[in-house]
Amino acid sequence: MRPTWKQRLWRMIGPTLLIVALWQITAWGVTSLRGVPFPTPLVTLQRLMELFANQPLAGYSLYHHMAVSLTRWLDAFALATLCGISYGLLSSRWNGLHTLTAPIPQLLLLIPGLAWIPVAILIFGIGEGATRFMIAMTAFAPIALATINGIKGVNIHYIRAAQMLGATPTTLFFQVLLPSALPALISGLRIGLGNSWRVLVAAEMVVGTGSGLGFSIIEARWSLDYPSALACVVIICLIGLILEYGLIRPLEKRTLERWMVQRRSNDV
């Protein structure tokens, strides 16, 4: 049954209220026990409004920081998606390549994003290149693995049906294997997206790019402007949510609605 708008609204508001309440309690507790001013939700919201009204933060407007972070992320994520899918396809196509390289994405998956900092700085020096490198590295592995697993998990009957209908290996690959791997691929994109968005912020904090949301958090911390730091965290969450609900969910919904047949028969 589809939830009514009331249920939907409650599903959105309920958890938000809970988070705000926990935040408020933490702020009160920290302020009274440790005597340091922990920004309350209200203070943070006020600061957020000021920032939205173009008050500068670490030398730039909030919009600039958002734009810079998103651009970095988009560049690197697009590159990682392209490489991840291409690698996944090539490696499913050629066994030799698979045998040779199969452990690599597995290993990459084990490396925490921040562990790339020294490597990134050594290769690219401090700055844009290093940040992008870190984002791309963390997004690549889940996307590549999802592509490989998606293709490996294709229902053999689809392959047989396509061959029986006269598909050449190339058509089989692009018109059968790839589309039937799509649901798996979307889950890979989702994980890659989450990973890379998180590492973007962390990378900006450490690699020192001079702008961006992560950089702003660190700068706000140095200047004891904690409300701004928390305001940036809120923005990061909001952008993450928008990417999930605006990009991944609709894509997933459209695919799964049609692919349900396959899902069901694969479960058996």
């Binding site: 009957h157 689809y158 047989r160 049906a161 029986m164 059968v176 589309p179 049609r258 396959q262 028969s265």
Partner: peptide, 14 residues
């Protein structure tokens, strides 16, 4: 030349 109908229709869902 030898068309097969499977127990499960296996139409391509896409």
């Amino acid at each position: 030349q030898r068309g097969v109908v499977f127990q499960d229709a296996t139409l391509f869902p896409w």
